[in-house]
């Protein structure tokens, strides 16, 4: 596992994917609090802003900034979690590198596992750095939040993105092209959004993790979304095992 994990991490670094993911997540994490704080000021300076708009705009507060932070990171994070690993398996199969690797004494579980862990690590690193920046800006622009709550929010965000990484790796394993893999992942994203419209299901869907994280940061009295956390982990494990099951029967 170590050899392939090292190779995967090195690949993320040398192909600049690590930098792209981390930089985009950091920027996305910083923009949230900044935009909430300064958007009213920017609008006030702009010519042609309808009269009375400034009066109806709510006063920016820390809750709005946290919402913006979560929304930015989760949306951009999901897109990155689909686009970055979409070629991870299918690309190696079509280029022929998978054949060279899998003719060595290495199991297919390790081959897939190394990819999931490596991608997970770069997203965790991105969320960590974005979280540090976001926490600092939220603190100086609004108020200092409880570090444990903010850490929990980012942890839940990372698990949420990990789910999309696992789904995309599964899709990359079963597909014949990277675009098909991305299509499957986007399809599942839409499906989960549609399921969210069912009130009885929404507390158990992965998106509920964001609301839970928000509540932990803002110290709101909300029921913990253990069910959603369990479902998210179940999807991660199922995607990995499902991918492995298919991969074990595939010819390289």
């Amino acid at each position: 596992m170590q050899t392939l994990l090292r190779k995967e991490l090195r690949e993320q670094w040398r192909t600049y994917r690590f930098l792209v993911v981390v930089a985009m997540l950091i920027v996305s994490g910083l923009i949230g609090p900044l935009s909430v704080k300064y958007l009213p000021l920017i609008l006030a300076q702009m010519p042609g802003v309808p009269e009375g708009l400034m009066e109806v705009m709510p006063e920016p507060d820390v809750a709005m900034a946290v919402d913006e932070y979560v929304q930015n990171l989760s949306q951009l994070g999901v897109i990155l979690a689909i686009l970055i690993p979409m070629a991870a398996v299918v690309g190696e199969k079509t280029s022929g590198t998978a054949a060279l690797i899998l003719s060595k004494p290495v199991s297919r579980a390790v081959f897939l596992g190394a990819k999931l862990i490596a991608h997970g690590l770069i997203f965790f690193a991105g969320i960590l750095l974005a979280g540090l920046g976001g926490y600092y800006y939220l603190g100086i622009l609004f108020e200092w939040l409880t570090p444990v709550g903010f850490l929990a929010l980012n942890g839940l965000l990372a698990i949420y993105l990990m789910m999309f990484l696992a789904i995309t790796l599964f899709a990359s394993t079963i597909s014949r092209s990277q675009f098909a893999a991305a299509g499957i992942s986007f399809g599942l994203l839409i499906f989960l959004s549609l399921l969210g419209a069912v009130p009885s299901l929404s507390p158990y869907l992965p998106t509920a993790l964001m609301a839970w994280g928000r509540a932990l940061v803002l110290r709101l009295d909300v029921e913990p979304a253990w069910g959603a956390l369990g479902v998210t982990f179940a999807i991660i494990v199922s995607a990995f095992l499902g991918g492995l099951l298919v991969f074990r029967h595939q010819e390289i």
Binding site: R10, S95, G96, L100
Partner: peptide
């Protein structure tokens, strides 16, 4: 030890 007809490698390595 296996050598495929057209061996492929990681171009960044």
């Amino acid at each position: 030890g296996y050598l495929p007809e057209e061996p492929s490698f990681y171009p960044w390595m």
